[in-house]
Computed example of a mutant assay.
Amino acid sequence: MTARVEVALARSVDALPAGTDWAFEPKFDGHRMVVIREDGDVVLQARSGRLVARAFPDLVSAALALPAGTVLDGEVVVWHDGRTDFAAVQRRAAAASGARARALARELPASYAAFDLLADGGGDLRRRPYAERRARLVGMLGPLGPPLQAVPSTTDRETALTWYETLPERGIEGLVAKRVGDPYPGGRRGWLKLRHSDTRDAVVVGYTGSSRGPRALVVVLPGDGTPVLTTPLPTGLRGEAGRVLPRGDGGEAVVTAVGVGEVAYRVLPEEGRPVLEVRQRSTRHGAFSAEAVRFR
């Protein structure tokens, strides 16, 4: 496999699927990352394809224990007071120098929650069924232990629903459902995700500020054609937005922002508009605003 891995995606659903051919996993609140163990080296790839090993020296060191030819898919998380801390992961990912990254690795050690095994010993497993990939993943990571660990998984729907109700206090966003017989759906929304109601996927239709470092994004939620301006983007997300927003100019439009009024923004071309996870907020007047969380 090459260093550029096209990761599997998930589409949002309102309920867990029924039936006996599904596996359910907790959805951790972290940054998507592919770990590639090469001969004598480790490559860490973000969902966008950007190489991020420099920011996570602790995970590079841990991944050296993997057999050469291993490729993992998962989330990098930081635990704080017994729950995942997304802001801490953002700080880790934004480390601009090796010295800063090493200091943050000591202050905010990362863990890797692996949920798929894409290659083993150089053999591509993406066409193999999930159940086989899962078994091999657990067999590989079990003897190693933290900070590389397989996420929990169950085929029992009632257990999954219990997780959904009880794990949010630990920073778990929801659940991902995967058919046990399916291959790895790289580049497709072949998995299902059930998230708690305060987060939703939205299509980015525009931005304010510079296209290479937007101040805020304009999004449209599923089933609602009304544009909504997000709250100002944190520094790390501005940089990511500058990398994933499609180039081109669709003109200028105006969005009405809560507490601000009319705001002019640049419209993105329809081709290649990215999907952004937003956290919903309601004001005391019943209006809606959105906090950008991450690109999907």
Rank of each mutant, 00 (worst) to 15 (best):
Y265K: 01
R134F: 09
L194Y: 03
D224W: 07
D58F: 04
G272P: 04
D41A: 02
P214F: 07
S211N: 12
G49Q: 02
P129Q: 02
G181M: 05
T20R: 09
D39S: 08
R83P: 02
A88H: 09
K193M: 11
D224F: 05
T162A: 12
A216H: 09
V293P: 08
G145V: 01
T235C: 00
Y207V: 06
M1P: 10
A18M: 01
A101R: 06
R11C: 08
V89C: 10
L194H: 11
A253N: 09
S61L: 13
V258K: 01
R284A: 15
S289N: 06
F24V: 02
V60M: 02
A290L: 09
D14G: 14
Q90R: 12
G261A: 03
A88V: 14
A103Y: 03
F28Q: 01
W163Q: 14
E277F: 12
E262S: 11
P129K: 05
P269T: 08
V7L: 15
D224Q: 06
G272W: 01
G49V: 04
D249M: 00
E165F: 04
D201Q: 15
H196G: 12
M1W: 09
V260G: 00
A3L: 15
A253Q: 08
D29Q: 02
L141W: 10
T2V: 12
Q90V: 14
K178G: 10
L51W: 05
E165M: 06
Y130S: 06
P222W: 06
V275F: 03
F288L: 15
L229E: 00
A105W: 04
G250A: 01
Y112C: 01
V176P: 08
G123T: 13
R134K: 09
L117D: 02
D81G: 05
T199I: 14
R106V: 08
V254F: 02
A241C: 13
S197Q: 08
L51T: 08
I172Y: 04
L268S: 03
S282F: 15
D14C: 03
T155Q: 13
V42L: 00
S153Y: 07
A290S: 04
T235R: 14
